[in-house]
Amino acid sequence: MSDKKLYEQKIQAEFDTCKAQVDKFKAEASGASANAQIEMHKQIKQLEEKMSEGKTKLQELADASEEKFDEMKKGVESIWQSTKSTLHHASKHFGK
């Protein structure tokens, strides 16, 4: 399997893990007070936006040629780092 395919699978797995955490946050938010729900939903929305950006970049990477892989990989890494940072920040609001 090519490095590109392995990398795509790795990042996809990381985004899947992040999505599972967002789903968990959504479940927690439904049981929170109204004020807490507002902040939780704000954090969830930010995460979903970052994940959407990441999915777009990952799809661009998948569609790119092997020659463009290294160039495209930097963009995916940047989005993934931003998504992880947003997830970490949201986790603080969810008490995790």
Rank of each mutant, 00 (worst) to 15 (best):
S82L: 07
D3I: 11
E48M: 14
Q43V: 09
S91M: 13
F15T: 10
G95H: 14
Q21H: 03
G95K: 15
E39Y: 08
G75N: 10
K19F: 04
A36W: 09
E28W: 05
S85I: 07
A13R: 06
D23F: 04
A32L: 13
I79Q: 11
D3L: 12
S52Y: 05
H93F: 13
S85Y: 06
D16T: 11
I44E: 01
A13K: 08
S82W: 04
E60W: 04
K84M: 07
W80I: 07
E60M: 07
K73C: 08
D16W: 05
F15G: 00
E14M: 06
E60N: 10
D3P: 04
T17S: 15
K57N: 02
I38P: 00
E60Q: 13
M40G: 13
D23S: 06
K50C: 15
K55G: 13
F25P: 00
L6N: 05
D70F: 10
D3Y: 09
A90Q: 08
S30R: 08
A29M: 06
E60R: 07
S52A: 13
L47E: 00
Q9K: 08
Q59L: 04
A27P: 00
S33F: 14
K84E: 10
H93G: 14
A90P: 01
K50V: 11
M40K: 11
E14H: 05
K68F: 01
I11V: 06
